[in-house]
């Protein structure tokens, strides 16, 4: 890992928020998608979805490590030792995995937004994050290819799949905006170039890119913007998942891994 550049307390706090938001997005979607391991619609998908989930959790691990280094904390504690209301993932990740079309819809919305975010972060003045974002982006291209293939496959494959996809997209559209929810201390991050673009600008880029792909499938999508509590709302679905992914760590709290 590159040496951490000197950084003042205000920027550090804001940077910690940014790292946590990206890490939690990757961590939680990774865990939801890992639920398809063993029960995906076909063997190839079982392998693919598991592999993608493993990638996302791996990305979260390194982001948690960056955060731990910055805040003098422990990556495992951040991942497995927090209460469910301390998570900062976007509302999009609050939903249970649903059926296959629902997971495809979420994966497409997430991957396209993540590409916009990673493209911006590769220009971050915080070098450890810029380097990691560059590396992650190359891997995420495969995820995007996978999500795009499935979106088209369900959209073109007949009414049953198309209807399910369409209703899933409509259901998730508003919550997907929250990937670009404003961060505490965002002005500082933008001013310092740690976040090269405001979330609002990324949100506009992303919408312009996905609307032409999605609206032929599900009709006009409503005007939607990120909201201030987009990363703090929690659901009972997530409370259940949180219980699942912390169960091993809770079973033996003093254990070292």
């Amino acid at each position: 890992m590159a040496e951490t550049p000197p950084i003042d307390a205000t920027s550090r706090e804001a940077l910690a928020e940014l790292l946590l938001s990206v890490a939690d997005d990757e961590f939680v979607i990774g865990f939801w998608d890992s639920e398809w391991t063993g029960i995906a619609p076909m063997l190839e998908e079982d392998v693919a979805t598991s592999s993608i989930a493993q990638d996302e959790i791996g990305h979260a691990k390194v982001l948690y490590e960056l955060l731990a280094e910055l805040t003098d904390d422990d990556a495992d504690r951040i991942a497995f030792g927090r209460a469910s209301d301390a998570f900062r993932h976007a509302s999009l990740m609050n939903h249970a995995r649903g059926d296959w079309a629902f997971s495809v819809a979420r994966r497409y919305l997430y991957e396209t937004a993540d590409q916009v975010r990673l493209a911006a972060l590769t220009g971050s003045t915080y070098e450890p994050l810029a380097l990691l974002a560059g590396k992650m982006r190359r891997e995420e291209t495969y995820h995007l290819m996978h999500a795009d293939t499935w979106l088209r496959r369900l959209a073109d494959g007949g009414n049953a799949g198309r209807d399910r996809l369409s209703s899933s997209l409509e259901c998730l559209w508003t919550d997907a905006q929250e990937i670009f929810a404003p961060l505490i201390g965002e002005e500082t991050l933008v001013r310092e170039g740690i976040l090269p673009e405001p979330m609002r600008a990324m949100s506009i880029t992303w919408q312009a890119r996905v609307r032409p792909k999605l609206e032929p499938i599900c009709g006009a999508l409503p005007a939607a913007t990120p909201s201030i509590d987009g990363r703090t709302r929690r659901t009972s679905d997530f409370a259940w998942l949180h219980g699942e992914f912390t169960s091993v760590a809770r079973s033996e709290e003093a254990a070292t891994w």
């Binding site: 190839e44 693919a48 891997e139 495969y142 996978h146």
Partner: peptide, 28 residues
Amino acid sequence: ENPFGPTLCRAIYHCSACRQPFEQFKQV
């Protein structure tokens, strides 16, 4: 056949000439 194989870095292909499945070390 599948850009995701048995490990993160491997993809699965099929050869139409010799009809063998094989793995590729993924391009990233």
